[in-house]
Amino acid sequence: MKSYSPLITLLLAYLIMIAIGQSIPGMWQPVMLVIFYIAIGQALNVFLGMTGYVNFGYVALLGVGAYGMGVALGYYNELGLIPTLILGFILAAILALLVSAIVGGIALRLRGAYFAIATIGVNEGIKYLIMGAKIWGGSEGIVLSGILRKSFGAETMRFLSTTFADAGVIVVAIATGVVTAYILNSRLGYALIALREDEEAAKVMGINVTKYKQIAFMISCVLAGLIGATAWTLKLTYVFPQDVFAINYTVEAIVIVMLGGAGTLLGPLVGGLIYALLKYYLAIAFPGLQLLILAPLLIVVILLFPEGVVGYIAKKARGTRLENFVR
C-alpha cells in the first residue's frame, strides 16, 4: 500500500500559501520567506530526518549551490541567458554532488559521531578555501547586478531576481517535497528507516547501509544546492562567502526539522511555518536575539517532543481516517 495521499496535503499547503501571497498585498515577501524555510527543512530532512545522522555542514551545500549559479552568471554569461541559467543549475548540482560524494564517501563508512565531526569542518573548510585561495573573487565574492545588467539588460535582470527567482524557489521546494514522498514510499525509504533504528541489524537484514546513507546524503545536498542557487544567487544577485556559509542557516534547518518531526513528509512544512512566523515576530520583538531564543527551543524540543509536531499527530492518527493524510 504505497501512500501518496500526504503529498496532497503538502501540495495543497503550497497552493494556499501562493494564493495568499498573490492575493493579499504585502504578503508575498513573508510567504516567500516561509517557503524558503520549508524548503531548507525539507532538503535537510531527506538526510537528517530519515537517517538520524547530523549534517552540521548543511549550509555549505546551499553555499556551493549559490556559487555554482554565481559562477555561471558571473563568468559564463556570454553563452546567452538560457544556456547560462541552465549551466548555473547544473554547476550548483554538480558542486553539491561533489562535496557530498567526497565527505560522504569518507565519513559515512564510520559511526555517526565521526560523520558529525567531519561535517563540522566542511563549512569552515570550504569557506576558507574560497577566501584563502582567492577563488571566485575570494573574500569579495561575486557581485552580479552590474554584470547582469550589462549582459542581459535591466529589465531581464529585474525579472531574473524577482519573478524567476521566486518561481525557482517554489519549484525547488515542491520538487523537494515530491522527492521526499517518493523516498518514503520506496525501498530507499524503508532502508533508511531500518538503518536509522539499528544499523547493524539493518545490515543483517540485507541493507547495504553505507550505500543508502550515501544516496540520501547526496540527494539532500543537491536539493540544498539548488535552493542556494535560486533563493540566494538569483534572488539577491550576489554571492558573499561570509553570507552563504553562515552557520545560522544550518541551525535554522535543524530546528525546523526537529520541530516539525524528523523523517516525516509534512514535518518541515509545519516546522517551517511555525519557525518562519516565530522568527518574523521575534525579529520585531527581540531584534538580534533569534539564535539566543532558538537554541533553548531546540533543546526543549529534543528533550520533550523528540517526535516533533507531525510525528506526534501521525502517531495519534494511526488507525483513523486522518492517517492517510498525515505522515
Binding site: 537528517l48 538520524g52 545522522y53 547530523v54 552540521f56 555517526g112 559521531a113 558529525a116 541551525v251 535543524i254 526537529m258 524528523a262 539564535l291 532558538l294 537554541a295 533553548p296 531546540l298 533543546i299 529534543i302 528533550l303 523528540p306
Partner: peptide, 13 residues
C-alpha cells in the same frame, strides 16, 4: 546520538 549531538550544538550556540 542525534539528540545528544543536537543538544550539545544548541548549548554551544
Amino acid at each position: 546520538e542525534l539528540a545528544t549531538l543536537l543538544a550539545m550544538f544548541a548549548i554551544g550556540i
